[in-house]
Every structure is written in structure tokens, then in C-alpha cells.
Amino acid sequence: MATETLQDVFPSDTGPDAGREEERSHSPFRRALGRLLRKKIAVAAMTVLFILYGAGIFAQFVDTHDPNKIDLRATQEGPSWDHWLGTDRAGRDIYSRVVWGLQTTVIITLIGLVTGSLVLGVTLGLLAGYYRGWFDVSVMRFGEVVASFPDVLLIILIAATLRPRIINTTRDFEDWSGIDGIVSSGAVDFFVVGIALLPLSWFGMMRLVRGQVLSLRAMPFVESAQAIGVSTPRMIFSHLLPNVLGPIIVTASFGLGAVAGSEIFLSFLGLGVQPPRPSLGFMINDVTARGAASVSVLQNHPEQLLAPIAVIWALIFCWNLLGDSLNDVFNPRTR
């Protein structure tokens, strides 16, 4: 959960600096992108992420075996031409399980990003900053309530209490409607884990966007736009949103690393997406008996942990690296 703190670390209530304001007129994004692409590290991180996410998204095409295909005649084998990363104790292909585990992480991070940060966080932030007043107050207060939970406790609590309810309801629905396979597809798990991770992502983003909008409102270009009667939606989407995109991207980048880390942590505890759906945290849970045998496995059979650990580490590392680079690009002061 180490990474969780990162998103909060981004200085959220600071206004945009004057420097960026000047750049606005010269297509700041093209310039930012150009600066980003000149950073070798950023490019490398993006490449790795691209590969990992690509592998996850296209898991059905890049896997070599069915990830749940049990083959008791080939258990715990080392890497071979047939099993690139070997097999686990049920003879399942580790490479394919890693790829499918990545898909789980990809889905969860995207759900987290889209629903949490982008839709909820950005929208509420824009509206709260723009309208202020009671709306601002109530959203901020609500957010503070959620944020004042120790998030781990909240996540575990939600995953442990809501999931069984939702699964039962869905099963009843399946029986009633005759539609099969909703539960077994893992959709419910994605939904629950997505919800459980929401509090992690939306409030930080919302506070950041709101802060930015509050300062932008005082800028001359906003005032003049208001003076010439620009409509509210146009004001929000054409004038305010583009100006807060930079910080949004930086925060989202850190946030994605955090969400990925949390998803893996939850599955490690056995509270994430449930088997048979493969997940990276669960693979480690499985090998180390939820940590109890972790020292023994590290000591005697570290190779069993290598693949999932390397992927998890690379994933989070690259998100943080990218976030860093983006931060440099969009926040020139700390360059």
C-alpha cells in the first residue's frame, strides 16, 4: 500500500503557476508532450506500461494456455518452450496466469480511473469550484468524511460486507432472469473491488481540481469570458477543463499506480477479485500461503515468486516514474 500515499502527495491546493498560463496559448499539450518525449526515462516507463497493459488487455491473444487449465502431470515445472515461465503447483501455466492477472489489474485500474478519478473527481471538482456555495460545501464535507476513514479499513470493510450481499443479489437475479454466468464472469468482483477502491481515488482528484478552478476563476481570461456571456457548459469545458488537465494527468498517473497496488494488496489478502479469475496478488497469496510461508518460499524456492513480483513491481514502478516525469513536465518549478 506504499503507493497510496503518493496521490496525496501531489500538492493539491496550490494554484496553477503563472508560467503555465502563458504557455496556454501555444498549445501547452503539444509542448508538454514534446518535453515528455525528450525524457528517456519517461519514454521507457511508457513503453513498459504499454507492453504490460497491452498484454493485459489482449490477454486472450497473447496467452499460451488457458490460465486455469489444470495439468496435474506437469506441476511446478521450470521454464520450458511450452511453459515460458514454468507451471505452478496445479500445473497451470504461470505466464498465462500473469497475463490474465494483468488483465484483472488493468480492468480494476481503468474502472478506478474512469469512475473514481475522472468522472466523479473531475466533475465534482469542476462543479464545486465553479458554483461554490452549498454544493461545494456539501461535496467537500462528504469527501472529508470518507477521507477520514483509515482507507485500508474502509476498503477491507466494504469488500468484506458488501460483496456477499451483492453476489447473493446477483445470483437471485440470475435465477430469476435466466441469464447465467454474471457471477462466474467475475463482473461482480470487479464492481465490488472497484467500489472499494473508489474512496481512494475520487476525493484527492476532486480537491485538486476544485482548488485549480477556484484560482482560475479569478483569472482575467475567465472574467472576460464571463463578461461576454459565455454559457456555463462552454465555460467549464472549453475554458476551465483544459487548464486543469495537466495536474489531472499527473495525479491520475500516480493514482493508477496506487490503485494497481491496492488491487494487488486486496487480492493478496484474499479480498480482491476471486478465483478462478487469476490475479497477481492472489498468485503470491497462493504460493506463500498468505504470507505465512513467505520467508520459507523466498529462502527455498524464490523462483516461484519471481514472475508475479517482477510484474507487480514493474507496474507500480513505471506508473510512479511516469508520474514523476509528468510532474516535472507540468510543474516546471520543481524541475
Partner: peptide, 16 residues
Amino acid sequence: PGTGGSPSLDVEIVAD
């Protein structure tokens, strides 16, 4: 029973 974890492995294999 339980939450996550290997206890399901033999049951998974049986189902398989």
C-alpha cells in the same frame, strides 16, 4: 469457506 487463498485448490481441481 474463507477469503481467498489456497483452500480452494483441491476443490478447484475436483471441479476441473
